[in-house]
């Protein structure tokens, strides 16, 4: 708080040499004490005012669903009868923790998350770096990055089902021409996870590249200038200038991608085709998001689905806590 008061004090004396427009505003000295009070209030209150819209809207439309699912997770609640709920306490949770399907989904979510998120962010960073060069037709390159994100689910699901078809699919045709046996992409365990991850990578890499690109725009070029004067290669510039400058944005994409991977739902659903919510005959690519959808939407067990959602939240919090601990350790070690 001391910082802000300091501002207020230094700001109150009238500066004649300030920008003309600004000085015009503050010439009215009779009201200056009222103004400075207003000013002090502005500085104290404005942060809250700035974050208020977000919390207001969240309170109006996000809070009720959040509390409702929390309440539902403690009850037996069916989609067919929302007015009739039976108190279960933690039974939904204990049932889930004993359910093979839940642990299977958790494992799948983790493996698919890793094999999709890591390459996705790495490629995105590289692509953003390339896009940051002086390019011919740069608008075109940039907007093309977002094409997968804009492609409708209907098109994407048709294309990928045909690509990964067991019999006559393009991917099997290619690996067949190199002499390998065709893979049953949907019903094999690693094959299906690989296929789902490739859809995720296809869909989100350009998206992340654009986010990185925006951040790169704010890296002052004179850093590159002096680096290249020092004889740094492009790769070194990328490593020693771009990456450190982008750290907050990289952190952002890691957090958002982790959350996204935990909730992964659309891509495996579209890959699964009819009855896609099962995630394969052996649930080999059923993620937590899909399991939740299957429980709540297809089977109508809202209470249990809500418990899945809250467990997902707990898992994310655990990941965050572990991250914090590691970061603190590392800092101490240094």
């Amino acid at each position: 708080m001391s910082e802000t008061t300091e501002y207020a004090e230094t700001a109150s004396p009238d500066k004649g040499d300030a920008a003309p427009a600004a000085s015009g505003r503050r010439k009215s000295s009779p009201t200056s004490s009222w103004r400075s009070r207003l000013y002090r209030w502005d500085i104290k209150a404005s942060p809250y005012v700035f974050v208020a819209p977000f919390f207001l809207f969240f309170g109006a439309f996000g809070l009720f669903p959040l509390l409702y699912t929390g309440w539902a997770s403690l009850h037996r609640l069916e989609l067919t009868n929302l007015d009739d709920s039976t108190w279960l306490g933690l039974e939904n949770y204990t049932n889930l923790l004993q359910s093979d399907y839940f642990w299977n989904a958790l494992g799948n979510t983790f493996t698919i998350g890793v094999i999709s998120t890591v390459p996705q962010l790495a490629i995105a960073l590289g692509i953003a770096h390339l896009l940051n060069y002086k390019l011919r037709g740069s608008t075109l390159w940039r907007v093309a990055m977002l094409a997968p994100y804009a492609t409708s689910v209907a098109s994407a699901s048709l294309v990928f089902t045909l690509l990964f078809a067991w019999d006559g699919g393009m991917v099997n045709w290619i690996i067949g021409s190199v002499g390998f046996d065709p893979v049953n992409w949907r019903e094999s365990s690693w094959g299906s996870q690989f296929a789902v991850s490739s859809i995720v990578i296809w869909r989100w890499t350009g998206y992340n590249a654009l986010i990185y690109l925006a951040a790169m725009q704010a890296v002052p070029h004179d850093l590159y200038e002096s680096a290249s004067l020092d004889g740094a290669s492009r790769w070194q510039q990328f490593r020693h200038v771009t990456i450190p400058m982008l750290r907050p944005t990289i952190l952002f994409t890691v957090v958002v991608s982790t959350i996204g991977a935990t909730q992964l739902f659309g891509e495996p659903l579209l890959f699964g085709g009819t009855a896609g919510s099962k995630g394969g005959a052996d649930h080999q690519f059923q993620t937590l998001g899909l399991y939740l959808y299957d429980q709540g939407w297809i089977n109508g067990h809202l209470g249990r689905a809500s418990a899945v959602a809250w467990l997902m939240l707990v898992i994310l919090l655990l990941i965050a806590a572990v991250n914090l601990l590691i970061a603190r350790r590392l800092r101490k070690a240094q």
């Binding site: 692509i127 390339l130 896009l131 940051n132 060069y133 002086k134 390019l135 390159w141 093309a144 990055m145 094409a147 997968p148 804009a150 492609t151 098109s155 994407a156 294309v159 990928f160 296809w202 890499t205 350009g206 790169m216 725009q217 890296v219 002052p220 070029h221 590159y224 200038e225 290249s228 492009r234």
Partner: peptide, 25 residues
């Protein structure tokens, strides 16, 4: 900030990436 001009490899990589991105559309 974009003092570096793109070489041919940049274009090749970007073209490949763009092709994959646009193909389903």
């Amino acid at each position: 900030g974009r003092t570096m001009h793109a070489g041919p490899w940049t274009y090749i990589v970007l073209a490949l990436f763009t092709a994959v991105s646009l193909a389903p559309l």
